[in-house]
Simulated scan of single mutants.
Amino acid sequence: MKLPSPLSRLVSAYITTLRFVAGTSMAIIVLVMIAQVWSRYVMGGSLIWAEELCRYLLMWQTFLVLGLAYSKGEFVAIDFLPSHLSARGKWVLKAICAIPIIVFLALITMYGAEYASRFSNQTIPALDFIWGSLFGHPLGLHIGYIYISVSVGCALMILHVAADVVTSFGPQMRSAHQNGLDESNNTTEIGGRQG
């Protein structure tokens, strides 16, 4: 299914942004871990904030790129049943499976946001330490901003699952006709049902 031009540009910008954020956060994690190893084994001290900062960055990175991994088909999948179905059957199975997935992700999004809101009084120690070392006072960013990554990631995943079902509708139906099925779901002279 071909997307309209404005929507296509929006999707492209979204994917580019997610890739940039994932790449940048991974670069920061690698640099901080190199600094941590250097500090510990060469300088004889340790950066007390390094592990915590890397953990938080990794959490955000993971939840942000879940949807991209899903869209690229990089999740583990059992494809025994879909491989035996027609193109139309594969799409119907995908649509049926998407319903409980979206419901589950919606529940995680909702309860994840509720859980994150409970931590509005607790600040992020690593960022407070770094900010305090640089500017003389703690940053005061609460840890709920870390936990909300679960809700943000699941909400984005809902969009990816729904988009996958919608965008695969046209191609799956066209391939059903190309594989020898007409509108009445009967075999045609093109080559019969393939599946």
Rank of each mutant, 00 (worst) to 15 (best):
P4Y: 09
P4N: 14
S5N: 10
S5M: 07
S8F: 13
S8L: 14
A13D: 04
F20C: 02
G23Y: 01
T24I: 08
A35H: 06
Q36A: 14
R40S: 15
Y41T: 08
M43I: 08
L47N: 01
I48G: 13
E51D: 15
L58S: 14
M59F: 11
Q61V: 00
V65A: 05
L66C: 13
L66F: 11
A69Y: 09
E74R: 14
E74A: 13
F75Q: 06
A77W: 03
D79R: 10
F80H: 11
H84C: 04
S86L: 04
V92N: 04
L93N: 12
K94G: 04
A98I: 07
V103H: 01
F104G: 10
G112Y: 01
A113V: 02
Y115K: 04
A116C: 00
R118W: 12
R118M: 14
T123I: 00
A126Q: 03
L127S: 01
G132R: 03
G132T: 05
F135V: 03
H137Q: 15
L139Q: 07
L139H: 02
L141I: 11
G144H: 00
Y147V: 00
Y147T: 01
S149I: 03
S151L: 05
G153N: 11
G153L: 05
A155V: 12
L156H: 08
L156D: 06
I158R: 07
L159R: 02
V161R: 00
D164T: 14
V166Y: 13
T167M: 12
G170Y: 13
Q172K: 12
S175K: 15
A176S: 15
N179V: 01
E183R: 14
E183I: 08
S184I: 04
T187L: 13
E189H: 13
G191I: 11
